[in-house]
């Protein structure tokens, strides 16, 4: 299988990995880099479980060619918070009951983060639009939206400091 080196800034750190030309970014993250937090729900860009942030934008990593991430800044769920200091979205997803089975959660949080990184005062409609490509079959989305609203408020007050 023909392979080449993919270089990118992954969760703030430069990485290099040998990938196949036809690997998706999701393959590279899960199989080559062992970052299994990003999930595969359909492999066709139809459910958002594989959502990561590439150069500031939420994308479905299952349909992005790995090599399209060359020199890109890629953020995954593993890179946005630590146990000691969860990202505000991780904090509120936990506290607002936005997590049930947890399989959509990483993608959902990354979609929400891409939104809040640009806009910490989103309307409910903007939140819905940001996560409309993330299927959740457990929660009915309500607590997810509440968690994102709450995280936005946390981020506003953090930025205000």
């Amino acid at each position: 299988m023909a392979k080449t080196v993919l270089k990118m800034i992954l969760n703030g750190k430069p990485v290099e990995r040998l990938v196949s030309f036809d690997d998706t970014l999701l393959d590279a993250l899960r199989e080559d880099l062992g970052l299994t937090g990003t999930k595969k729900g359909c492999g066709k860009g139809e459910c958002g479980a594989c959502t990561i942030i590439m150069n500031g934008k939420a994308v479905n990593s299952c349909i992005v060619p790995a090599l399209q991430a060359m020199d890109a800044a890629v953020e995954t769920i593993e890179g946005i918070g630590t146990v000691e200091k969860l990202h505000p979205l991780q904090e509120t997803f936990v506290d607002y009951g936005a997590i049930q089975c947890g399989f959509c959660t990483p993608g959902m949080i990354m979609s929400a983060k891409a939104l809040l990184d640009k806009n910490v005062v989103p309307s409910r409609e903007e939140i819905k639009e940001a996560i409309a490509g993330n299927v959740c079959r457990c929660t009915g989305y309500l607590k997810i939206e509440e968690a994102i609203m709450a995280a936005a408020e946390m981020m506003q007050s953090q930025q205000g400091k």
């Binding site: 860009g45 958002g48 939420a58 979609s111 940001a130 409309a132 490509g133």
Partner: peptide, 9 residues
Amino acid sequence: VGSLQIRNT
């Protein structure tokens, strides 16, 4: 079109 993720790519 599709979803935000699709529209972003």
